[in-house]
């Protein structure tokens, strides 16, 4: 370190100390003050679970998921919570603090609302679905009093559950400074006191697809977290490398692309490639040699197994460098921590 660097560090430390004495929040990550390499303290996030599962008059008023033999949203949510806790090494704990099962279809952006019997008929014919498909988020925000619940701290995020063609984004972010979260931010919620995420799940599908929705949320948030890091400092860009885009330099890949994938969702590819995917289990030491991998490493094409494998490689320890925590989960779970 040069004399100039030393003088500058002393100067900035002195300013930081005095600013703290003045009670000014410097916005430093708590992780920056923790010892490196420990298991971070687990967090609990409060969830409002909103299930659009209307009764169907033409089917003895049974719920839609029963009529069409789809999954049980409560069981799916429970399995998803368990998966997230396990693959985050105990860090990520979601708690459903309120549950509402709604006996109607959500309103679309153009005001259209399905009638239950019409929807069942459309599903059986696989045609006649309404376009535009997008749901009316303004209506959801108002009906479920989302901003008030976020502001009071009662709820940290919302999980919407519905049928195919519900028109939800898989995830979308609201609140001050909200950014792309696999969907354009909810600009109309900028007055909220903090950022929040609304997930959109489909009870026709499984936990693997729910993890994928969470994975796209993770991709969006981590890309934004590292947006000002260039070159080797951008560890996110390194994490997502796969062989097709970075020949011989594969790391972990993306949700849609395992280290050897050649197209979207190609998790069952048997081609053997070199990858440094396991070095991320030793983070921040990424110096290990690559090893040869194929789909046998991540579940032979199983969506849930691949996504669990991917999430387990996200950095998940205490410490920080370059202003970014070594526990990437904290940003994904709480976007308010993203600077």
């Amino acid at each position: 370190m040069s004399k100039d660097d030393s003088t500058f560090d002393t100067f900035t430390d002195w300013i930081s100390d005095n600013l703290r004495k003045l009670g000014v929040d410097l916005g430093l990550e708590p992780a920056a003050q923790q010892p490196v390499g420990q298991k971070p303290e687990p967090v609990t996030r409060r969830v409002s679970l909103i299930i659009h599962n209307p009764t169907v008059p033409g089917a003895d008023r049974q719920r839609l998921n029963k009529v069409l033999k789809w999954g049980d949203p409560d069981a799916l949510a429970a399995a998803y919570i368990n998966d997230l806790r396990e693959i985050s090494y105990g860090y990520c704990n979601y708690e459903i603090v309120e549950r509402q099962e709604v006996d109607k279809f959500p309103r679309k952006q153009d005001g259209f609302t399905y009638k239950a019997d019409d929807f069942v008929a459309a599903w059986k014919a696989r045609e006649g679905f309404h376009q535009p498909d997008a749901v009316d988020y303004d209506a959801l925000l108002a009906e479920f009093d989302m901003i008030s619940k976020v502001n009071s701290g009662a709820v940290d995020e919302f999980w919407l559950f519905a049928f195919p063609y519900a028109g939800y984004y898989e995830s979308i972010m609201g609140g001050p400074g909200a950014f792309w979260c696999n969907a354009p931010p909810l600009q109309q919620t900028a007055h909220a006191k903090r950022r929040f995420v609304i997930m959109g799940f489909n009870y026709q599908r499984g936990v693997g697809e729910m993890l994928e929705a969470f994975g796209h949320r993770a991709e969006s948030i981590m890309k934004y977290t590292f947006r000002n890091k260039k070159g080797a400092d951008n560890l996110w860009q390194r994490f997502i490398r796969y062989d097709q885009t970075d020949k011989g330099q594969a790391e972990v890949g993306l949700m849609h692309f395992a280290p050897n994938s050649v197209r979207d969702y190609d998790w069952g590819n048997t081609t053997r490639v070199a990858s440094r995917c396991d070095n991320w289990l030793n983070f921040p030491d990424l110096s290990g040699a690559p090893r040869i991998v194929d789909c046998n490493d991540w579940g032979k094409g199983d969506i849930r197994a691949h996504h669990q494998w991917w999430f387990r490689r996200l950095p998940h320890i205490t410490g920080a460098d370059n202003g970014i925590a070594y526990n990437w989960w904290q940003y994904i779970v709480d976007p308010n921590l993203v600077r």
Binding site: E170, N182, E219
Partner: peptide
């Protein structure tokens, strides 16, 4: 904005 990523 980019295109939203979709599940298969």
């Amino acid at each position: 904005y980019p295109c939203p990523q979709a599940t298969p």
